[in-house]
Simulated assay, not measured.
Amino acid sequence: MIHIQTFLAKSGVYSRRETGRLIEAGRVTANGKVCTFKSEVEESDHILVDGLPLPPPAERVYIAFHKPEGITCTAQTAVEGNLIDYLKWESRIFAIGRLDKASTGLLLLTNDGSIVNPLMKEEAAKEKEYLVRTSRPVSDQMIEKMHEGGLLIKGKEASPAFAEKTGEFTFRIILKQGLNRQIRRMVSACGNRVTDLKRIRISHIHLGSLQPGEWRHLSEDEVSRLKS
């Protein structure tokens, strides 16, 4: 038995967030009964959404994408500059995690809803590496504060992070935490401002030679390690 939300996410048709909305609205049934968030189902159960069976599972897709500046990390086509329109992808895919509109670099995309939540859980968080440029010189004190952690990000404490100065106005940082606009807010809390932010690695997956707007399929080994 598996929870209905997990079952729907595994189908690759809906994102985890969309499955929640469908269940909350009472649009999902199992063997004729309306599902709740506590419902558990079998693979053999008769699952309907809006009275219709789920389409056949789509072939799993796992992509590394070099997000350019100005693209919004959403699959909602009503949002200007969304991922789907930019990539001209015919089937549904969505981002694992986010980069804000002004940031660039490595973004992972998939249609496999079953891996998104496990990857986003804080206790299972993967390392993410960034190159950062600031408007004012990078001070040793700022690097030390990032090492120590404790900077407040919208009421939450930033965890200790590896950071090293790479130039007068640049530094490299590795995070496991994923607070909203975390690096920008950490830098701001230290009296500086981010002018350029680029993610170059998520766990074992590197941006490599991908140019802005380019993408590639992940290898079988990369996908396997991502799920482990």
Rank of each mutant, 00 (worst) to 15 (best):
residue 1 M to Y: 04
residue 6 T to E: 07
residue 8 L to M: 01
residue 11 S to L: 08
residue 11 S to P: 03
residue 13 V to Q: 11
residue 13 V to P: 09
residue 14 Y to M: 04
residue 16 R to S: 03
residue 17 R to D: 03
residue 20 G to E: 07
residue 20 G to F: 01
residue 24 E to H: 13
residue 24 E to S: 10
residue 24 E to L: 13
residue 25 A to S: 08
residue 28 V to E: 11
residue 37 F to K: 15
residue 38 K to C: 06
residue 39 S to E: 12
residue 41 V to L: 11
residue 41 V to C: 06
residue 44 S to R: 06
residue 47 I to Q: 01
residue 47 I to Y: 02
residue 51 G to V: 15
residue 52 L to Q: 15
residue 53 P to D: 06
residue 56 P to W: 07
residue 56 P to H: 08
residue 57 P to R: 13
residue 58 A to K: 10
residue 59 E to M: 08
residue 61 V to I: 15
residue 61 V to P: 11
residue 63 I to G: 04
residue 70 G to T: 01
residue 70 G to C: 01
residue 71 I to G: 07
residue 74 T to I: 02
residue 75 A to M: 06
residue 75 A to W: 01
residue 77 T to Y: 00
residue 78 A to N: 00
residue 81 G to L: 04
residue 84 I to K: 00
residue 84 I to P: 01
residue 89 W to K: 10
residue 91 S to Y: 13
residue 91 S to K: 15
residue 95 A to W: 04
residue 98 R to W: 05
residue 99 L to S: 14
residue 102 A to N: 10
residue 102 A to Y: 04
residue 107 L to H: 11
residue 109 L to Q: 13
residue 110 T to P: 07
residue 114 S to C: 05
residue 121 K to E: 11
residue 122 E to N: 09
residue 122 E to C: 04
residue 124 A to P: 06
residue 125 A to C: 03
residue 126 K to V: 01
residue 129 E to T: 05
residue 129 E to Y: 01
residue 130 Y to F: 14
residue 131 L to R: 14
residue 134 T to E: 06
residue 137 P to S: 03
residue 139 S to D: 07
residue 140 D to W: 04
residue 140 D to V: 09
residue 141 Q to P: 03
residue 141 Q to V: 07
residue 141 Q to C: 04
residue 144 E to P: 01
residue 145 K to H: 08
residue 145 K to S: 13
residue 145 K to E: 11
residue 147 H to Q: 14
residue 148 E to W: 05
residue 152 L to I: 05
residue 156 K to I: 00
residue 160 P to S: 07
residue 161 A to T: 08
residue 170 T to W: 00
residue 173 I to W: 09
residue 173 I to M: 12
residue 176 K to R: 11
residue 179 L to R: 10
residue 181 R to T: 00
residue 181 R to S: 02
residue 185 R to T: 08
residue 188 S to F: 04
residue 192 N to S: 09
residue 193 R to F: 13
residue 194 V to F: 14
residue 195 T to F: 10
residue 196 D to T: 08
residue 196 D to Q: 14
residue 197 L to I: 05
residue 198 K to P: 06
residue 200 I to L: 08
residue 203 S to I: 08
residue 204 H to T: 05
residue 206 H to Q: 14
residue 212 P to G: 10
residue 215 W to K: 14
residue 216 R to H: 01
residue 219 S to T: 15
residue 220 E to P: 15
residue 223 V to K: 13
residue 224 S to H: 15
residue 228 S to C: 12
